[in-house]
Amino acid sequence: MDMGFTSELLKTVTFQGLSSTPARLMAAGASLVIWALSVFVLVELSFRFEAAGIADQVGLVAASIILVHYSLSGRFLLADIATWMALRTPVGVLYRNDRKILDRAREEILRLAGQHSLASFLPYSNINPAVARADAFEVFKQQEAGTLQSWLDDSQNLNTAAYLVFQIALVEQALAAGDYPKPEF
């Protein structure tokens, strides 16, 4: 039985490109600075509007724009601005990149599960005992029950399934290299 091992599969199920904890911390710090500067600029603008005597007019215009936007779109303008800004901060960019990597791994696992019963790879445990770890049986159970797709929505479960596929791929790589005799299925 061949899973179709490729180096791309290995990169996908090992979440290659996922941001590191230090990168996330730096992105969170930079994002916090951006938000703090944004608040500072808004407060500074309000003081300048107040000093110029136009704070009431600017507030009325802003409230009118927010009301018209809400009336036309059914969405709150300030929430839209905050969402737009959050997606462009360093932590937002990292989040979107990490989400793409996790989604790609999920799609690959589901594709493989659609082609093979993952439990059918249990004979590989003679070569690599990690294929028969206790958490692998939960993956087998979810696939058998037809709930694998929704089960993979949890990142911990996705990690468990990716680890299983990685271990199977390692065995296939060793078999392809001729390091072990092909197990009986």
Rank of each mutant, 00 (worst) to 15 (best):
E44G: 11
E44S: 15
L45M: 13
S46H: 13
F47E: 13
R48G: 09
F49D: 04
F49T: 11
E50Q: 14
E50L: 13
E50Y: 08
A52M: 12
G53W: 05
I54P: 00
I54C: 02
Q57A: 14
Q57W: 08
G59C: 03
G59P: 00
L60F: 10
L60T: 13
V61C: 04
A63T: 11
A63I: 05
S64H: 10
I65W: 04
L67S: 15
Y70H: 12
S73H: 11
G74I: 03
R75Y: 07
L77K: 11
L78S: 08
A79Q: 12
A79S: 11
D80Q: 10
D80H: 04
T83V: 14
M85G: 05
A86W: 00
A86D: 07
A86M: 03
A86F: 00
L87M: 09
L87H: 07
R88T: 10
T89N: 08
P90H: 03
V91R: 02
V91Y: 00
V91K: 02
G92I: 04
V93Q: 02
V93A: 05
L94K: 00
R96P: 02
R96S: 12
R96K: 13
D98N: 09
D98F: 00
K100P: 03
L102D: 06
L102I: 09
D103K: 01
D103T: 12
R104F: 02
A105Q: 00
R106L: 03
R106H: 06
R106V: 07
E107K: 09
E108H: 07
E108Y: 02
I109Q: 00
I109T: 02
L110R: 04
R111M: 13
R111N: 10
L112A: 07
L112T: 03
L112V: 12
A113K: 01
A113M: 07
G114C: 10
H116A: 03
H116V: 04
S117W: 09
S117R: 15
S117D: 15
L118K: 02
S120E: 14
S120Y: 09
F121S: 10
F121T: 05
L122P: 03
N126L: 15
I127T: 06
P129R: 14
P129Y: 07
A130R: 15
A132T: 03
A132K: 06
R133E: 05
R133S: 13
A134F: 08
A134H: 09
D135M: 11
D135K: 13
F140C: 00
K141V: 04
Q142C: 04
E144W: 05
A145W: 04
G146A: 08
G146F: 01
G146R: 01
T147I: 06
L148M: 05
L148A: 06
Q149C: 09
